[in-house]
Computed example of a mutant assay.
Amino acid sequence: MLHFRKKNSRELIKQVAKLHGCSVAEIREEMQLAIEEARNNDDPDKKAEFQRLFGDKTPTPEEFICKISKSLKI
């Protein structure tokens, strides 16, 4: 089972930044924007799923990776 901890998530973000030739800050910013879009999705099912996973909190990119990796069936 695939499961990331915060340390693993930070390393993953660093690797993505290196792969795309940009900074960690840029990757984190893009991820945070995507997380905000997911949180504010108009689809009631998607909104409920986000609420189930994160409650009223907007997760950091690292928290998002950790939580989502727990739900993957790989």
Rank of each mutant, 00 (worst) to 15 (best):
L12H: 04
L12N: 07
L12K: 04
L12S: 09
I13D: 00
I13W: 00
I13V: 10
I13R: 01
I13A: 01
K14D: 12
Q15Y: 05
Q15E: 08
Q15L: 06
Q15A: 07
V16L: 06
V16S: 01
A17F: 00
A17H: 01
A17P: 05
L19P: 00
L19Y: 05
H20V: 07
H20A: 04
H20G: 03
G21N: 11
G21E: 11
G21I: 03
G21H: 06
C22D: 04
C22P: 01
C22H: 02
C22W: 03
C22F: 03
S23M: 12
V24I: 10
V24T: 07
V24D: 14
V24H: 06
V24N: 10
V24A: 04
A25P: 01
A25T: 11
A25W: 04
E26Y: 08
E26T: 10
E26A: 11
E26I: 04
I27E: 00
I27S: 00
I27N: 00
I27W: 00
R28T: 05
R28M: 01
R28G: 01
R28Y: 00
R28W: 00
E29T: 11
E29C: 06
E29W: 05
E29S: 15
E29K: 13
E30M: 08
E30C: 05
E30A: 08
E30T: 07
M31R: 10
M31L: 12
Q32C: 02
Q32K: 12
Q32W: 02
L33P: 03
L33M: 06
L33V: 08
L33E: 14
A34G: 11
A34L: 06
A34P: 04
A34F: 05
A34Q: 07
I35F: 05
I35A: 09
E36N: 11
E36P: 04
E36D: 12
E36S: 12
E37N: 10
E37T: 09
A38S: 13
A38V: 02
A38T: 04
R39W: 04
R39G: 02
R39K: 15
N40L: 08
N41A: 10
N41F: 01
D42M: 12
D42Y: 10
D43H: 09
D43L: 03
D43S: 09
P44G: 02
P44Q: 10
P44F: 03
P44T: 03
D45S: 05
D45Y: 08
K46Q: 11
K46V: 02
K46F: 08
K46N: 13
K47G: 01
K47H: 14
K47I: 00
K47N: 14
K47R: 08
A48W: 09
A48I: 09
A48S: 13
A48V: 03
A48L: 10
A48Y: 09
E49S: 13
E49M: 15
E49G: 14
E49A: 14
E49D: 14
F50W: 04
F50M: 09
F50H: 04
Q51I: 07
Q51M: 13
Q51T: 12
R52T: 15
R52D: 15
R52Q: 14
R52K: 14
R52M: 15
R52S: 14
L53M: 12
L53A: 09
F54K: 11
F54C: 06
F54L: 11
F54D: 06
G55T: 11
D56I: 07
D56C: 06
D56R: 14
D56P: 05
K57T: 15
K57Q: 13
T58P: 05
T58R: 13
T58I: 15
T58M: 15
T58V: 15
T58N: 14
